[in-house]
Write a protein that binds this DNA or RNA. Structure first.
Length: 403
RNA sequence: GCGUCGGUGGUAGAGUGGUCAAUUACAACAGACUGUAAAUCUGUCGCCCAUUGGGCUACGCAGGUUCGAAUCCUGCCCGGCGCACCA
């Protein structure tokens, strides 16, 4: 350590290292090598690259961030790569279709919102932040040719998702081939010792190794986290809506966790929280509902704080276990005595519930509209005579008062 | 560029002149059952009006043929595949 360094010492406790290499980890390449390095006391450079391709993070994307935080806690240097350059190219991993090239402004905006969200997990003041345009935009065709020579087309075509797309007669752009090269070169540029990523990133993350060797560096080790399934047990994907967004309101987040299948609780504990695994075992062996509630509380607390977690839990219990009403619900005002149909089909109501008139009619027919502590509203020709609270479907509530 | 096949609802994917607001699956929504679970069962699932019922807009885009088009024709846009070196 240099005289001026205030870098904390690297922790080499074997237990901690083993936990690091196993919790929420699908594969480590090369495991023994990395273990040795971690125990050596050397401060390692841990790389995670992100592409600011979408403004919202979900809990699946938080998994490597948590792992990064684990490394940080052991005293290693986190190097965060913002793929401002690669985002323009578009990654192809884990996708069934071609990725669009993104506009600059979009990337910038996404980046801002990314850090606002990721900052809840990782202490960015201790992170070395780099933009990969810094080195990528300088590369010449000649150099790119040199890098490209390290890989064969067969390697690329053999990738499952590419093979599948080709098989299905979908287009695979040549530009997508460039992606792993760039990501690999990032590792060279920052001299990464370790790179993190999901198992879907294996190919890309591994691309750093031959490139680093080519440039006379020791090839980085790689820690891959498993991909967690979405709430419905199928592959997590924002477009399927089976994700928990990090920006979700506490109540929403809590409810989302509660709606997942019991079988998923344990893996979520392992990957998305840092409740000690011994305790997780204990929790998981108890009543599934209690386990899930605990998970929901943990997760909400991570992103919104303990108070919000408690409130969310109380609300949830009131709403769903006791059939009461959550506390923050919107209120609409209507004139006394107007018929229900006029009220339900009013613009303000439709806008609030975000349904069309046709859909609202349907909801009424299906018996989805009920008064709290009262009856379903079936007869929409009767009148609105007293302030009340409506429940629409499962989780939509509207308080009604007189004008 | 030439040839050829194709572009359908949130997604996948049927339909090739009327019976098509469009089979089916998944997703979504609602009801039942529950632990708001999950699974399961039932129903709904373009918009608008209405009590049965009716109207409007939709099948890449723009025109056309026809009593009638997602379905046929023309042009355009986009994509797949083949050809484009040996000749």
């Amino acid at each position: 350590m240099g005289l001026f360094s205030r870098t904390p010492a690297v922790i080499t406790d074997e237990k901690a290292v083993d936990e690091l290499l196993t919790r929420g980890v699908a594969e480590v390449i090369v495991k023994e090598d990395l273990r040795k390095k971690l125990l050596s006391g050397k401060r390692l450079r841990i790389k995670l690259g992100i592409d600011p391709t979408s403004p919202d993070l979900h809990i699946g994307r938080a998994v490597p961030l948590l792992k990064l935080r684990d490394f940080q806690k052991l005293g290693h240097q986190i190097v965060f790569i913002v793929g401002d350059f690669t985002a323009v190219i578009g990654d192809t991993s884990d996708k069934e279709s071609e990725r669009p090239m993104l506009a600059r402004e979009v990337i910038e905006k996404n980046k801002q919102s990314y850090f606002a969200q990721a900052g809840k997990i990782l202490d960015f003041s201790q992170v070395e932040m780099r933009y990969n345009s810094e080195w990528l935009k300088k590369l010449t065709y000649r150099e790119i040719g040199e890098h490209a020579d390290l890989f064969s087309v067969a390697d690329f075509v053999a990738r499952e998702n590419i093979a599948r797309r080709l098989e299905a007669g979908k287009r695979v752009s040549l530009r997508e081939l460039l992606y792993p090269l760039m990501q690999g070169y990032d590792s060279v540029a920052i001299q990464a010792d370790v790179e993190l990523g999901g198992t879907d990133q294996k190919f890309n993350v591994l691309a750093g190794r031959p490139l680093q060797e080519h440039f006379g560096q020791a090839p980085q080790n790689v820690v891959l986290n498993p991909l967690i399934d979405g709430l419905d047990g199928t592959k997590m994907s924002s477009s399927k809506g089976n994700v928990i967004a990090l920006t979700a309101a506490p109540a929403d987040m809590y409810g989302k966790v509660m709606s997942m299948a019991d079988e998923q609780v344990k893996i979520y504990f392992e990957l998305c929280t840092r409740v000690p695994m011994g305790e997780v075992e204990k929790i998981a062996s108890g009543h599934p509902k209690d386990a899930k509630m605990r998970l929901a509380r943990e997760i909400v607390a991570m992103y919104h704080g303990d108070d919000a977690a408690m409130t969310a839990e109380t609300d949830w219990q009131n709403t769903f276990s006791k059939g009461e009403v959550p506390h923050d619900i919107p209120t609409l005002h209507f004139g006394r005595g107007i018929p229900w149909y006029a009220l339900l089909l009013s613009d303000q109501m439709l806008e609030l519930v975000r349904v069309s008139k046709t859909e609202m009619r349907r909801l009424v027919e299906q018996g989805a509209i009920s008064e709290i502590g009262g009856q379903k509203i079936k007869d929409i020709n009767s009148n609105f005579e007293r302030p009340t609270t409506l429940r629409i479907g499962k989780h939509r509530f509207v308080k009604l008062e007189f004008l």
